[in-house]
Computed example of a mutant assay.
Amino acid sequence: MALTSDEDWTVSVGGGLLPPTTRPPVAALTEVWQTVRTLDLGAQQHAALRKLFGAGGTEAVEDCLDGGTFDFPIALPGGELVAVRVRRGDGLTDRQRRAARYQPEQLPGEGRNVGIWVVRDTRTGDLVEEDGRVLTWGVKASAASWIGRVVSRGDYRGWNGRVAS
């Protein structure tokens, strides 16, 4: 079966073995395999993990991505259970994606004046403007508060059936 989309996948292995990592599908599965292949998991688990993540293809995992997420539990030595998780896309919610889009940034100060705070739109690389003027704040908390309002406004628009910007 061929991939149904060309989006990246986010993979992780619990227990701190592999933090969430977003890559193209084959590279993502390779990352999982490189993480789990040397663990002392026993022959049966090792064979299953090799078939899913180490075979060089994505078909087996693609078949399991029901609803966009696939969790594969593994028992580590000592009995601890962790999961290998594969998700379509970057693994972020719309809210998290909106929040990550904007970053507070302090401009260099001049003389005795400390730098003012602005917000950069990471999608465009530009500073955020309203009515043709760059928005500025004296403290980082105020810039972060503006980002929070944008995220909340997007939540409301999504809940209200409108597309959030």
Rank of each mutant, 00 (worst) to 15 (best):
M1P: 14
M1R: 13
M1S: 12
A2Q: 12
T4L: 05
T4G: 14
D6V: 08
D8K: 01
W9C: 14
W9V: 03
T10A: 05
T10W: 04
V11P: 02
V11R: 06
V13F: 03
G15W: 09
L17C: 00
L17Q: 00
L18K: 02
L18E: 00
P20L: 09
T22V: 06
T22C: 09
P25L: 11
P25T: 01
V26L: 10
L29R: 04
E31T: 15
V32I: 15
W33K: 13
W33L: 04
Q34T: 04
V36H: 00
R37V: 01
L39S: 02
L41Y: 10
L41H: 04
L41I: 06
G42Y: 09
Q44G: 09
Q45L: 10
A47K: 10
A47N: 11
A47W: 00
A48V: 03
A48S: 09
L49K: 01
R50V: 01
K51I: 04
L52P: 01
F53I: 01
G56K: 12
G56Q: 09
G57W: 00
G57H: 08
G57A: 09
E59V: 08
E59S: 14
E62T: 07
D63H: 02
D63L: 10
C64N: 12
D66N: 09
G67H: 07
G68M: 05
T69K: 07
D71L: 03
P73Q: 13
L76K: 03
L76T: 04
P77G: 02
L81C: 05
A83R: 03
A83S: 00
R85L: 03
R85M: 06
V86T: 03
R87D: 11
R87M: 15
R88I: 02
G89D: 14
D90N: 15
G91M: 09
L92A: 11
L92K: 13
L92I: 02
L92E: 07
L92P: 03
T93W: 09
T93G: 13
D94A: 07
R95A: 05
Q96V: 06
R97L: 04
R98T: 06
A100L: 14
A100I: 09
R101H: 14
Q103E: 12
Q103D: 02
Q103R: 15
P104Q: 08
P104R: 08
Q106T: 01
L107I: 07
P108V: 09
G109S: 08
R112V: 04
R112P: 11
N113Y: 15
N113Q: 15
N113I: 00
V114W: 01
G115E: 06
R120Q: 11
D121Q: 13
G125W: 05
G125P: 13
E130A: 10
D131H: 10
G132W: 07
R133Q: 02
R133E: 08
V134S: 06
V134R: 14
K140W: 07
K140Y: 06
S142G: 13
S142V: 05
S142R: 05
A144C: 11
A144T: 13
S145E: 15
W146T: 02
I147G: 10
V150Q: 15
V150N: 08
V150G: 03
R153H: 14
G154A: 15
G154W: 07
D155S: 10
D155R: 11
D155F: 05
Y156P: 01
G158C: 02
N160K: 10
V163S: 11
V163Y: 13
A164S: 14
